Amino acid sequence: METIKTQVNISDNRRLVIDLQIPANIPTGKMDVVLVFPGHQKSPSKSARVLGAYKGRIRIGEDFDEHLGDKFWLGENNELSA
């Protein structure tokens, strides 16, 4: 696959005529041509993250730092399986 990039100006009559000098290593005959038009840029999210927005809403269990044990790591603990 070969790529040729050029900039064009689309006039008010919405017609585009492209005259390119194609390199000699490109075979003649029917070819697919792809035109890429820039899409509308998404505006940044209006609601930015706020530090501390969930303060006091998240609870960490008392046993958070405790050893989980081999049964947990080997997938043998059915208490946490749903």
Rank of each mutant, 00 (worst) to 15 (best):
L20D: 03
M31C: 06
M31V: 10
L68T: 00
H40T: 13
R14V: 03
I58K: 08
D65M: 07
H40L: 14
E79S: 06
G69P: 02
P23M: 03
E2G: 08
I58L: 12
R59S: 08
K5C: 09
S45Y: 13
R49N: 15
N25V: 06
T6Q: 13
L80M: 04
T28H: 02
K46E: 10
P27I: 04
S47Q: 13
L68K: 07
G52M: 08
N25E: 06
S81R: 05
L51F: 12
R15V: 05
V33P: 04
T3E: 11
K55G: 08
H67E: 06
K5S: 13
V34K: 12
H67I: 01
Q21M: 01
G61T: 07
V17E: 08
N9Q: 12
S45F: 12
K71T: 02
I10M: 09
P27C: 03
K71M: 00
D63N: 13
E2Q: 12
L51A: 15
V50M: 14
I4Q: 12
N9V: 12
E2P: 10
I18S: 02
A24N: 09
F37V: 09
V8E: 05
L74M: 02
R59L: 08
L16Q: 03
I60T: 10
M1R: 05
G29W: 07
A24D: 13
V36A: 11
E62G: 05
L51N: 14
K71S: 01
T6Y: 10
S47Y: 09
E79T: 05
R14Q: 09
R59H: 08
T3H: 10
E62A: 10
F72T: 01
D32E: 05
I18Y: 01
E76N: 10
E79M: 00
I22Q: 00
I4F: 13
G69H: 03
S11Q: 09
L16T: 04
K55T: 14
M1N: 07
K42T: 13
F72A: 01
Q7G: 12
I58P: 00
S11D: 09
V8R: 05
E2A: 13
I18A: 03
Q21G: 02
V8D: 05
N77C: 03
K55E: 15
V34I: 14
V8Q: 08
N9A: 10
N13C: 01
F37L: 11
R49V: 14
I60V: 14
E66F: 01
S45G: 15
I26S: 03
F37S: 06
L51M: 12
F64N: 06
V36T: 13
W73C: 01
A53M: 12
T3I: 11
W73L: 02
G75L: 00
K46H: 07
K55Q: 14
V33K: 05
P44A: 14
A48Q: 15
I22Y: 02
P27M: 02
I58F: 08
F72L: 00
R49I: 14
R49Q: 13
A24M: 03
Q41T: 15
D65F: 06
P23C: 05
Y54V: 13
T6D: 12
E76K: 09
L68F: 00
P27A: 09
L35A: 12
K46A: 11
M1I: 07
D19T: 07
G56P: 04
K71Q: 03
P38K: 12
T6N: 10
S45Q: 14
D70W: 00
G29Q: 08
D32Q: 05
I4R: 11
G39I: 04
S45C: 11
Y54I: 11
H40K: 15
G52S: 09
A24Y: 07
G39A: 11
